[in-house]
Amino acid sequence: MAETVALAGRGILILDPSSTLISGDAHLDEGIVLWPSIIIQNLGGRIDIGRGTELFSGTRIVAAGGAVTIGAETDIGEEGGFTIKAGSGDTIDIGDGARLLGGGSLSLTNRIGRGAQILGPIRCQNCTLGDGGTYRDPVPDQRGGVLKGSGAARHVEVPQGHVIQAFGLFTDAVMRRQSYFHPKG
């Protein structure tokens, strides 16, 4: 508990240190916000979390022999937490400005690009979402790749400016331009 509280001296905001578990060898940059009930657990792997990232309640990050790298200014776990687990030999890379919301999970090896989003309780395994602007970018087709809905996404690739919405298996769903969901007009 004392080690967790000491992180505040490094510019990390921990809203409830008594409900927050952080492995001592996880690397956290300054400006990170940790909501209550967060677990960051390094079990023989590597965890790096970039500056300004916000981890919401119910988020669990585990490196069980693998590596988890989270870029700067990401939002993870709003609307139901999120689980990120890299097993032995797995690598999970999450780019700057990504958003992972709504109770989903990443396991095995995944690359979630800069500005990419996972919106909903989606179990992602071996997925790649392309780099792009964040959800605030005024041009939807320039944003990072998006998965939204619920279900399982395995070996799915979504390039910049595209989205797959599904309720079940994402490999069976249609990929569309983001402007389909956010038309100008």
Rank of each mutant, 00 (worst) to 15 (best):
L106R: 05
D131V: 05
R99V: 04
T109E: 04
L108V: 13
G103M: 07
R136L: 15
I94G: 03
P138K: 09
Q125R: 14
A98R: 07
T91R: 13
G115E: 11
G89E: 03
I118W: 01
I122S: 08
G102E: 10
G103C: 04
P121C: 00
A116C: 10
P121W: 00
Q117H: 04
L119C: 03
D90N: 15
T91I: 12
P121E: 14
A116D: 10
A98D: 05
L108S: 14
G87T: 06
C127M: 11
G104A: 02
Q125C: 04
D137Y: 01
R136F: 11
L106I: 04
G133E: 12
Q117C: 13
R123A: 05
G89V: 03
L129I: 11
R111N: 14
Q142G: 01
D137M: 05
V139M: 10
C127V: 15
G130A: 07
R123N: 10
S88P: 12
A116R: 06
Q142Y: 00
I92P: 00
R136H: 12
C124K: 03
G104H: 02
V139Y: 01
I94M: 02
L129Y: 02
P138F: 05
S105E: 14
D90P: 06
G130C: 08
Q117I: 04
G102T: 07
T128I: 14
G97N: 10
P138H: 06
R123W: 04
G120W: 11
I94P: 04
L129A: 10
C124L: 02
I112T: 08
G115F: 06
V139E: 15
Q142I: 01
G97A: 05
L101K: 03
G132V: 13
G89H: 01
I122H: 09
G133K: 09
L106A: 09
R114Y: 04
P140S: 09
I118F: 00
R99N: 10
T134H: 06
R114I: 15
T91A: 11
G104Y: 02
Q117D: 08
G95D: 09
D93F: 06
D90F: 00
D93R: 13
I122G: 06
S88F: 01
Q142E: 14
P140K: 12
N110I: 07
G89P: 00
A98K: 09
R136D: 14
L129Q: 12
G113C: 13
Y135W: 11
R114D: 03
G120V: 09
R111C: 08
I94H: 09
G97V: 05
I94C: 03
R136Q: 14
S88W: 00
V139Q: 13
G133Y: 05
A98I: 07
L119V: 08
R114E: 14
G97H: 06
D93L: 13
I92A: 02
S105G: 15
P121N: 11
L100F: 11
G102S: 07
R99M: 09
S107R: 14
G89N: 03
Q117N: 12
T134P: 02
V139K: 14
G120F: 10
G132T: 11
N126S: 15
D93T: 14
P121D: 12
I112F: 00
L106Y: 00
C127E: 11
S107I: 03
R111H: 12
G89A: 09
I118L: 03
